[in-house]
Design a protein around this nucleic acid. Sequence first.
DNA 1: ATAGGCGCCTGCTGGC
DNA 2: TGCCAGCAGGCGCCTA
Length: 294
Amino acid sequence: MPELPEVETVVRELRPQLVGRRITALEVSRHRLRRPWSADWLPQLIGRRITAVRRRGKWIILELADDQHFVLHLGMTGQLRLHPALEQLAAHTHLIARLDGGRKQLRFRDVRRFGCALWFGSRKLLEEFFKEARLGPEPFAVDSRYWRQQLARTKRCLKAVLLDQRVLAGIGNIYADEALFQARIHPAKLAKDSSGAESARLRQAVTQVLNRAIARRGSSIRDYVDGSGRQGEYQKEFRVYGRAGQPCPRCRGPIERIRLAGRSTYFCPRCQPLRLKKESARSSDTSQKRAIGP
DNA sequence: ATAGGCGCCTGCTGGC
DNA sequence: TGCCAGCAGGCGCCTA
C-alpha cells in the first residue's frame, strides 16, 4: 500500500505518541510475514525505551535505547497503529507491543502478509542492510545531476525507473502514475530518451506530488489507515490513478489503462503523448500503438 | 549485469 | 444466487 506519503504519515502520527515509551511485552502471531518471526531478537526489544520513530523509503524505523533498531515494512496491506489496550483484536493482527502505562498498544496488522519486521543491533547494521538492498536516495534529496544520470544509464521505461527503489526510495504505483501525469510524460517513454526538460519536469513533479500527498495524509484506497486509524485524503485528488475511462482533468479525454513493468498504469494519451525521438511530427496515436504493442 | 516474469498471501469485485 | 477469474498500493527470486 503504503508508499512514501502513507509511511511518512504513519511515522508522524506515531512519533509523538511512541517516543519516550517503553515496550513492556511483545506478542507475535504464529503466521510468518515475509520472513518468520525470530525468537532470537524479539526479546531484544522488550524493556527498552523508544527514542525515535523515523522513515527511510517505505521502511518504518523504531529506534530503541542501546542502539537497537526495530524496522517494519507495510508491504501492500500493512497497518501500524496504536490501539486502546482493551480494544478487540482485528483479524490478521501479527504483532502486539505493550507499552508502559498500559493504556495503549502498538499493533501491526497485515492481511496479505507481504509486510516484514526486522531487527538490527546497531545503526551500522541497519545502514548496511539498506546498503546491501541498494536502497536509493529519498526523492527530496535528489539533485538534477543524479537524476539525469539515472535516467541515462538504463534501458527501462520511466514507469519502471520510478518504481525502482534503488533509484528513488519510496515511490510506488500510485505516485509514479500521478507524477508522470503531472510532468506530462508517457509512462512507457524510455528513460534514456528523456530530454533535459522532461527529466527536470519529472523530478519536480515527483516531489510536488509526494509533498501534496503527505499534506493530505496519504491515499486510502482499501486498507490504508495512519497510525491512529484515520484514512488519508489524497485519493480524492487522483488525476489518473484508478481512473480508466474517466475524463482527464486537463483535456477531458478518457484516461487509459495499460500494463507496464508488470503493473497497472494509468495515463492520459493526449496529455502524455509518446513521441519517438526526432519524430515529433508523427501523431501521438501512431507512436503509442507502436510502443505499447507486443 | 540487467530486465522481465512469477510467486508470495488474502479479500473483493465483476462477469457469467 | 454461486462460482471463478482477475485484480490489488510491494518485493525478492529466478531465468534469459
